[in-house]
């Protein structure tokens, strides 16, 4: 089963009591991102075909890629590759799909991150990161505070 593409797909879902517009802003604005992504922010115009990169607080590049689809405030698709760890960079590009669906006073955010070929290190890298980032994002939007401060 090692060639099964589902083995290289990770799905994260959360319901956030906010609007799709506000969540889109939180997912794309550098000022918002720094608050829940441990100092990291993205640089991009977030239009289809535009370059995209994630930048650490100290200015180093974390990841790079391209915006494949942008349909604010509903759907964002990124081509994504690690830049700061050689062994991760060697695994090549992954694909990250973010979908925002309004549902009964909240927004269902689904993040589907996948890589075309088996990448053990990719799995390690993303599966540790996304739950923390998403959980922090939810806390920030719902309470105005990141998760730990309570």
């Amino acid at each position: 089963m090692s060639t099964d593409p589902e083995r290289n797909t990770y799905v994260y879902v959360t319901y956030i009591r906010t609007t799709p517009e506000r969540l889109w802003e939180a997912l794309t604005s550098a000022d918002w991102m720094r608050k829940y992504w441990f100092g990291i922010h993205a640089e991009s115009t977030f239009t289809a075909g535009a370059p995209w990169k994630l930048v650490f607080a100290d200015g180093r590049t974390a990841d790079t890629g391209e915006v494949l689809e942008a349909d604010p405030p509903r759907r964002l698709v990124l081509k994504w590759r690690n830049e700061f760890r050689e062994e991760l960079k060697a695994e090549g590009y992954s694909r990250c799909v973010m979908e925002l669906v309004p549902e009964a006073g909240a927004v269902r955010l689904t993040i589907t991150h996948s890589i075309a070929r088996p990448g053990v290190r990719f799995v390690e890298a993303i599966s540790g990161g996304w739950p923390k980032v998403i959980s922090n994002l939810k806390s920030l939007l719902e309470t105005g505070q990141a998760a730990l401060s309570g």
């Binding site: 990770y10 799905v11 994260y12 959360t14 599966s127 939810k138």
Partner: peptide
């Protein structure tokens, strides 16, 4: 898929 966000 297992969704770990609520456990986080």
């Amino acid at each position: 898929f297992l969704n770990p966000v609520p456990l986080q």
